[in-house]
Design a protein around this nucleic acid. Sequence first.
RNA 1: UCCACGGUAGCUCAAUGGCAGAGCAGCGGACUGUUAAUCCGUUGGUUGUAGGUUCAAGUCCUACCCGUGGAGCCA
Length: 458
Amino acid sequence: MAEPSPASASSDSSTLSWKKRRLPTVASLRRAALQGKGEESGAPATVAGWLAGRRSSGRLLFLNFRDGSGFAQVVVFRKAVSSEAFEAARHCPLESAVEIRGAAFAEPRAPGGMELRATDFRVIHAAEPYPITPKEHGASFLLDRRHLWLRSRRQHALLRIRDEVLFAFREYLRDQGFICGDTPIFTPNACEGTTTLFETQYFDRHAYLSQSGQLYNEAIAMSVGRTYCLGPTFRAEKSKTRRHLIEFWMLEPEVAFAELGEIVELAEGLICHAVDRVLTNRAAELATLDRDPERLRRIQPPFPRITYDQAAARLAEKGTDFTLGDDFGAPDETALTEGMDRPLVVTHFPAAIKAFYMEPAPGRPDRVLGMDILAPEGYGEIVGGGQRIHDHDLLRERVREHGLPEEAFGWYLDLRRFGSVPHSGFGLGIERFVAWMSGISHLREAIPFPRTLYRLSP
RNA sequence: UCCACGGUAGCUCAAUGGCAGAGCAGCGGACUGUUAAUCCGUUGGUUGUAGGUUCAAGUCCUACCCGUGGAGCCA
């Protein structure tokens, strides 16, 4: 590659030409047409994208066109274009790459209120017969063609909502003084020791794929105070439900000097900010998914807080199979959040069912300062975390009690030998959150290429 | 790992043990405002694999493969 001169590489003109090259788009044309800006509405424009659908009506064709920024109806009048262009528009297969010259107009009969009236139609690449039709398909068929399924209106909306959620989380945390310090994916041993890990080769040694960045986050938090990591997480559990993925993304904030109550508030603020951004910026996508925005508008602080023991009493009233001392099962979570319009915060779990690093509750050594946040509508646990043990001797005792290899946790115990402070954090499941925002029933649509128990491709 | 269900045309599904079917998609045609358009015509099959029972198996039996839903675990 030729080395660009420093002047041209950083000049305004190159930035401008990139910005200019990307316009107009379906989104910019719709904005202009709906706002009635004389400049762009009705003015000639050329857009490039894909043919997403077609209906014909004699000398009139209705195309559904997608250019990445959105979908738009294109009207092709036989008289308005050359006969070659009309035949091309009438016959080229769905998902062909096409270039359309025309003009955008506000049009109440068109979906989205804008349509592009074509003056020319050119095929950039004629597609082979497209396997995904506008009719019904099963999950298995679509997942085998996930690389193509992503082009559908529904998946397009889900990708944009996921992006909005991720951006909103980062925005909120940055605003609160957090640093994104990332944590390794190759790890020498288990973070928690409870769940199954994916084992892999690391040259001549064994390594595992990370199931949490938390322990590393604790080290980073002792440097910068407030940190988070956001990345993929791997659980080699043979989970086979709509609420589980083998590879999923997790946001994990960790805060020095924070106690349990403070990170509950952090989670609450973080969740409400993301909800607000999705409602503001992704209203059209929510409509595409038939997600009622009113349900999301009701997600406001404060979230109700109950302790594990209060939750257990509530389950006893409701008469689920729950046994005191156990963790909540999926039916228990659904029962607890039944009829609620905002998430439920549960704290003070039995020490026996939680991870070794959880701080004991003051005055209740059999309970720990852990917290789970259960989303309403059956979306289950979206947040899990709590306050970490900061006392060196207590933590070492817990490592031993759990039968963990003490030498592997040497560096982790070190954090409690050099200026140890109370600190807390949590993990938030991105796909569960996106699924909840979107109102979809299965996590596999909340990530572009889901990894499920028996599905590794595409 | 356990429980349940499924595998028939490109897709979604029918078919008492007795000729392999429909709708949609595709292809050809009609139609100047469609919203999953409509209408006419038409192509399309090693019934997941292997074996067994039977005059006869998509259908019954056995094993295996693949998938879907759920449980447990967790985000």
